[in-house]
Simulated assay, not measured.
Amino acid sequence: MNSLHAAPELAPYHDEPAQLPSGAPGKNGVLRLGFERRGERTILAGLCRQAPLLVQRALYWDEAMPGLACVFIVTTSGGLLQGDRHSIEVRLGEHAQAHLTTQSATKIQQMDANYATQTQDIVLEDGAYLEFLPEPVIPYRGSRYLARTRVTLPESATALYAEIILPGRKYHRDAELFGYDLFSSALRVTRPDGRELFAEKFVIEPAQYPVDGCAVMGGFDVVANVVLLTSAARADRVIDQVPAASTLAGPAVAGASRLPNDAGLIYRVLGTDSEPVRAVVREFWSLVRRETVGAPLPPPFRWR
């Protein structure tokens, strides 16, 4: 996780910004969160934060899961800037339950030098349950972004992880739609003994490889990549209830597949805009909740 600069897709972008150099104070964000089960409630027992990443406290707004620790990840810089190096570490103790999200969409600002990175290291212990569902990512024109996520969990734990990627500021001005230079994201999942369950990586470079054609985005603009990491029995219950996509004419299409090594499921959604995609992801999230912890979702916040 420390050799991100060696990724081949970053080779054209190693020039330093004219402003603060990459990784300088204020650009090297660090967040470490440790959750523990205390009685009927999960608490945020460990917290280390370094600007521009910030977490304040755990909240408990979910009436169906009153012990679920709900935490907003905040960035004080208004998004990811060129030269930013962010690192997030999350650990859930035995039978801890947590919901992580962001305070708003992650905006990857326009760049004229270097790139931005974010690493996420997530560890779950026996019986833990995590929902990591950040708001969508918006890569601005000319931005370069590389994300690396590693999840370690036993078979008894469950993690629902999602990323929703917008095509840019679609309605802002010309050249914003798929106008970013680079979006690279990789996920690696292992058992606590080090056994690798699966790894995936996708690299999007719209100027070199157009993404709006057949077998890529195919006329859609928004993609959601949702991964359910859980036992084979729970995954079976979920996939049996996921409807199969039957048409490409609607505002969103989706489909689920099994992951190798009984790691769980992967669920992909394509849509014409963000709201239809978010709605389909929420339906899948509701199904996962019901089949893994036996609880319904709360109604959406009114401002969503």
Rank of each mutant, 00 (worst) to 15 (best):
G294I: 01
E63W: 07
G250A: 12
W303L: 14
Q50R: 13
P52E: 01
G194S: 10
E125V: 05
L270H: 08
D121C: 07
E205C: 15
Q82W: 04
A69G: 05
H172E: 12
P136G: 00
D112P: 06
V238R: 12
R282W: 09
R144I: 09
F178Q: 08
V90F: 08
V211P: 15
I43G: 02
A252M: 06
L20V: 06
R32I: 09
G179D: 05
I204Y: 15
S286M: 09
F202W: 15
R144Y: 08
T106D: 14
M1T: 13
P299F: 01
Y13M: 00
R38K: 04
D121T: 10
V277E: 01
L146H: 03
T149M: 02
D240I: 13
R91F: 13
R85D: 10
E89R: 09
E125R: 05
C214G: 15
I73C: 02
G93Y: 04
L166H: 12
A254W: 13
T247S: 15
I122D: 03
L124E: 05
D262M: 11
Q118G: 01
Q82K: 02
Q50Y: 11
V238Q: 13
I165D: 02
F178P: 10
V74R: 06
P139L: 00
L81G: 08
D193R: 12
A58T: 04
L124Y: 07
P154I: 03
T152W: 01
L166T: 13
M217D: 13
S184P: 12
P139Q: 00
P192N: 11
C214D: 15
H99E: 12
V227M: 12
A233V: 15
F198G: 10
D62T: 03
I266K: 13
L44F: 01
V90D: 04
S77R: 03
H5I: 10
A147K: 04
G23A: 01
E291K: 10
R41N: 00
F183L: 11
I88W: 03
V55T: 02
P298D: 05
L182D: 09
P298E: 02
A279R: 12
W61F: 11
F183T: 06
I164D: 02
D262L: 12
G264H: 05
G219T: 10
A159W: 08
N114T: 08
Y129S: 03
R32V: 10
A254H: 14
L287E: 07
W61T: 07
S274T: 13
K107N: 07
F198I: 13
P12R: 01
P300E: 08
H14M: 03
L248D: 14
D62I: 01
E36G: 00
C70M: 12
